[in-house]
Design a protein around this nucleic acid. Structure first.
Ligand SMILES: [Zn+2]
Ligand SMILES: [Zn+2]
Ligand SMILES: [Zn+2]
Ligand SMILES: [Zn+2]
Lengths: 121, 121
DNA sequence: GTGAAAATGACAATCATTTTCATTTCTGTT
DNA sequence: AACAGAAATGAAAATGATTGTCATTTTCAC
């Protein structure tokens, strides 16, 4: 694996959760890495193509990345105050698998997010 | 309701499924409507705030809109050839409601999409 | 009719992402 | 080592959706 790619991968491991390309770029620079923003984008693309990293979207459309195989969960987000609860998605995982096999699909991933108004709002 | 807002709403009804702001703007112009792109965005924002319209994201991050309460379904998309299957999401609807009430959330909506490789690819 | 307030739209600004392209680094060959 | 060609890099420009600005128009209550 290219040095730039493994550097981005290491940074993603270090943050633990989600991070955008811009955030990763800033983090790497704060740690003294000499990598360009373009290369961060290219490395992320490589990692996504190699199924090492998942890509999802923030609510504003910005792409965020996370390691595959990590503690997989979903989110329940309050539209008003932003409060976020991490959700175990067992039921959804099962559903995704069922639907996939019913339709002859392989290597099926999924996104699922819940959003509403929390008790305080 | 403002004229511009109901115009956007009508266009969204007419297309039936998902549409981006830019697409709606073009459609409305093709039909002779004199509405600015800015107002299309503002009307969509109003509709989303009024819970008349849902907002999701295309894979490239572009925002797409659809009427709430319409024949609600999810998608199973082939990453390779783009083949798309519409999915009845009964199990997900139930899951969303359960999670929401367990966490004291109200007015909970959700997004859920499946993506993989179809039998032909 | 008057004037305040809301709505509109042209245009500019913003911001993530992609493209371009010149330069640097790598890799194998003589 | 010297060389050539390929791959990788990054700075800067281009792109494209979305948002902000602000002068003008429309609406509405009095
Ligand atoms: Zn809240
Ligand atoms: Zn899941
Ligand atoms: Zn396919
Ligand atoms: Zn659903």
């Amino acid at each position: 694996m290219r040095k730039s790619v493994s550097g981005v991968l290491a940074t993603l491991e270090h943050v633990g959760g989600f991070a955008s390309a811009q955030e990763l770029y800033q983090l790497m620079h704060r740690d003294g890495a000499k990598i360009g923003l373009t290369t961060v984008y290219r490395s992320l693309q490589t990692l996504v193509e190699g199924n090492l990293v998942d890509i999802l979207r923030r609510e504003d459309g910005e792409a965020i990345y996370r390691l595959c195989g990590e503690n997989h969960h979903h989110h329940l987000v309050c539209k008003s105050c932003g409060k976020t609860v991490e959700i175990e998605g067992g039921a959804i995982e099962k559903w995704a698998k069922t639907i996939a096999s019913e339709n002859g699909f392989r290597d099926v991933g999924h996104t699922a997010e819940l959003f509403g108004t929390c008790a305080n709002c």
